[in-house]
Nucleic acid binder design. Structure first.
Lengths: 345, 345
DNA sequence: GTGAAAGCGCTAACAG
DNA sequence: CTGTTAGCGCTTTCAC
């Protein structure tokens, strides 16, 4: 059952030649080496037959130019993550890497994905032999607990949540939930509600809690909670339609991302209501389309961009071994006021 | 100027201890080894002072369990690429990798980015010591020429374009441009135009050519060409506003992606026109928000999803060394008819 | 035409 | 408490 990985030695033995012959054949250097085409054929055949997979570590070690140092960086994120965030991190990281790359310093950026809540099952995470540094994001609380316990043996910058013992960049706590509530209340909404998905990340529950708390404080009643099954526009539309058809009432909606908000727009319009006059809407996100919805969506931007702008240099400082890297950076996201919350008096 | 990379040997020499002491210190095993805290301190200091960067190839080779084979896969894409496509590839690849991962077979997925048109400057591309296999996409024609010439020394699946000597998955030529034109003509548009960005990928020029050709054939006149500076909604809005303010006329618009279409919506509405009655709009893309624009956007989906579904298994077949992998797969993208092209008769 | 051998950087086992 | 040594898989040079 446990078939050991095949090396060029096994191939060599199998064919009856030397490892060097195999190596040059597989690198297509058999011509310079003047191997007989018969040998070449046999070697190639054996390689596929035995299921040979080259060991890149071996090759790279051998090929290593001692003048260059190579940094392997990774973005560690869950599959279930919103793509725009991962993309932002990726682009910011690549841009930084571009700048830092010199003749003697190279970088590689990888994306490692895990299933939300099952980071601990991810193989190789605790090995110090894969990455020089990592940006970790889109975890669930279970994952955070695991990471806090495990103490990963390489520099880690955690994005969007706080994990003890790690360097973290996160949204100022409460800010998004509170500002969203305030925006709706300032738009004279007396019955604000919140639309979120069933699965709550650390960040989302923070926002949810702050929003409902502020609404409670200022209006004296509970904010309506509309729970969707996912984070796509469709999920938002379905959830809000159900809410309306069960007689639910609201005049202000905080959607925990812009996709849900887009879905909410449709449900609101389909029910004969108008945005913002009947229902004002606030979303979260930096999605490029938010401004192009009809009406343009007011968005508490989510601190993604600002967080990423902090996290990337932080990672490089850690890589350089700087001592004085702060362990927690709080970021205050911008709010983009647009027509979805501008109601006639 | 050329400072060679530091190894643990240099650190050892510098501090006056053995490499093993350095190794265990850097791996935080100095306690088991009962190193004096003084030595540990000196080693740590020397490491940062000399700018030590561990060689992962060395570590991994050493740590290698001979029972496991590791595949390193990469998505090779330009920075300028639309994120959704890269995300689709990434997710599809990760899903496949998840399934294929066993106790004895591990996979790593990386993203390598290059600047569109400058793939040839990307270091290490021609080395056979980084990746077992690659999915290449979002190239410009110059890049394609380079790749065709270079013959990358590992399996490559090319996505969305045809490059000689490589395995390619691409959209059926002409299809998107032709269908978009037909959709507009069927919606009784007499003056269709096309909105695209200045920078043309292989795919986009194909679409542009097919669209204008079909329009010319059926209406006898040239399609209006509206050229934007970028691919974001904003760029589309600006370009179309300029077109209108210069007295341009059209009653049907083909936007080469959904973001441009969203921007176009705004310009159309701002000019007092309505979608679809004054201007019918067709976009390209699989963006989740297309359906949630107002009115919902008719989209020729772009073959992304279908292409990815072909490309990923193809890559694995190549990795397995299968002989019979077809070198070209053509994919026909679905068309989603929505209200942006449903005009009153 | 082909094989033997050295060594890339690292760490675990062993020997003091 | 610390040093020496072997060897992970691979390729390149040298020797035959």
């Amino acid at each position: 059952m446990s078939k050991p990985a095949v090396t060029i030695y096994e191939i060599a033995k199998h064919v009856g030649v030397s490892p060097a012959a195999v190596s040059s054949t597989l690198a297509n250097r058999h011509i310079e080496r003047r191997l007989s085409s018969e040998t070449v054929r046999k070697i190639r055949e054996a390689a596929t037959a035995l299921g040979y997979v080259p060991n890149m570590a071996g090759r790279r070690l051998r090929a290593h130019k001692s003048a260059t140092r190579q940094f392997d960086l990774a973005i560690l994120t869950s599959y279930e993550a919103p793509l725009p965030l991962v993309g932002q991190v990726l682009h910011a990281l690549q841009r930084a890497v571009d700048v830092q790359t010199t003749e003697h310093t190279r970088y590689a950026v990888a994306i490692e994905m895990f299933h939300a809540g099952r980071l601990s099952e991810k193989a190789g995470l605790l090995d110090a032999n894969r990455y020089h540094g990592v940006i970790l994001t889109n975890t669930l609380p279970v994952d955070d607990a695991f990471v806090a316990e495990a103490r990963l043996p390489y520099p880690v910058v955690v994005l969007g949540r706080r994990i003890p013992h790690y360097h973290c960049v996160l949204e100022a706590p409460d800010f998004v939930g509170r500002r969203s509530a305030e925006v709706l209340l300032e738009a004279k909404c007396g019955k604000p509600g919140i639309l979120h998905s069933r699965q709550l990340t650390h960040t989302t529950s923070d926002r949810l809690a702050a929003f409902t708390r502020v609404v409670k404080e200022r209006t004296g009643r509970e904010a309506a909670k509309i729970v969707s099954t996912g984070l796509q526009p469709h999920d938002g539309a379905v959830a809000l339609e159900a809410f309306f058809s069960e007689g639910g009432q609201l005049d202000g909606l905080f959607a925990v991302n812009d996709s849900l908000a887009a879905g909410a727009y449709r449900a609101i319009k389909a029910s004969g209501r108008r945005v913002p006059d009947d229902v004002a809407v606030v979303g979260i996100g930096d999605y490029e389309l938010a401004e192009y919805l009809d009406p343009p969506l007011t968005t508490v931007a989510g601190a993604n961009e600002a967080m990423v702008a902090e996290a990337v240099p932080m990672l490089f400082r850690l890589l350089r071994g700087e001592e004085s890297v702060s362990t927690e950076v709080l970021v205050v996201p911008p709010v983009f006021m647009r027509q979805s919350t501008q109601r006639r008096a």
